[in-house]
């Protein structure tokens, strides 16, 4: 599996007064098994980028190659692509519509034209993977709690057995425990099932804890691409874009400024605690 995004442009309403450059010259590649974070303030183009990866929007310039083939080329099977690159929208529970949880999750694989057994097996696996119990399978999706609905909705995309899963702010609106549950599901999908994950998030703390690589978007351009540690070492640049570094990284930087000889390139609470304790000789 490989995705290559090559000089991707997207201009809304080209040639009119309403012309907006949503994406401009974006290039990067995604390899199998990666765990990527995609950040940027609202309107930076990250959701537009996600829609392109899923074939929901057509590039106005450049291209996207999935396994070497241009997905915008004539006759390319987009439905099949959407089975390979899954996209979970923000507030995905708003798209639930079937009478019960299980039937709803079957919707995706059924659209792929699979046999009934295959569809049901995939739905079953997907629901299990997001931690929904059997006794919830035949209740109405509208009767579930917020966190459960969200997980069912993710299962709906997961049942298409994607190799890549793009999650657009999967934690929005959930309480801290609910956030942890969703992120644990993402980790599990990555670690056990080997699914490549692209996580769109505003929370630098979450990204620091979960992803390996971070892409930073600003005004439609890809401005940073590197390991989480590398990206978070550019504190000033991030702040200029209205973004931040993880709280603990900021703490370490403050300490360093105050003359305490700590490393300031650490990004999680555990790392930071260890480093401070090292300096204080514990």
């Amino acid at each position: 599996m490989s995705i290559l995004v090559n000089h991707l442009d997207h201009i809304y309403n080209p040639g009119t007064v309403f012309e907006v450059k949503a994406l401009s010259d974006v290039s990067f590649s995604v390899d199998e098994g990666e765990y990527i974070g995609l950040v940027g303030h609202t309107g930076s183009g990250k959701s537009t980028l996600a829609a392109h990866l899923n074939g929901l929007m057509k590039p106005t310039g450049g291209g996207i190659y999935y396994n070497g083939v241009d997905i915008a080329s004539e006759g390319y099977n987009l439905k099949e692509l959407r089975g390979h690159i899954g996209l979970v929208f923000q507030y995905p529970e708003h798209q639930l519509f079937e009478e019960d949880v299980f039937t709803d999750v079957c919707f995706g694989p059924k659209n792929l034209g699979l046999s009934r057994t295959e569809v049901e097996m995939r739905a079953y696996d997907a629901l299990k993977a997001v931690g929904i119990d059997d006794d919830h399978f035949y209740v109405s999706p509208f009767d579930l709690s917020g966190g459960e609905k969200r997980r069912v909705a993710i299962a709906g995309v997961l049942a298409m057995k994607p190799e890549v899963l793009i999650l657009d702010e999967p934690c929005a609106g959930l309480d801290p425990a609910g956030r942890d549950e969703i992120l644990a599901v993402a980790d599990e999908l990555h670690d056990s099932l080997g699914i490549t994950i692209i996580l769109i998030s505003h929370s630098m703390d979450d990204l620091a804890r979960h992803v390996k690589r971070i892409l930073v978007m600003n005004d439609g351009k890809l401005v940073m691409d590197g390991t989480a540690r590398e990206v978070f070492s550019h504190r000033e640049e991030l702040e200029a874009m209205g973004l931040a570094v993880p709280e603990v990284t900021a703490v370490l930087a403050d300490l360093k400024k105050a003359g305490i000889p700590v490393r300031d390139d650490l990004i999680t609470v555990e790392e930071a605690a260890k480093e401070i304790l090292r300096v204080f000789g514990r």
Partner: peptide, 23 residues
Amino acid sequence: LRENRLNVPEVTLLAHELAKAGL
């Protein structure tokens, strides 16, 4: 707080970890 499905701010968590380790 965690038992109640909540959390604390990251800074508070870091301070908590440090205090636990004896600082």
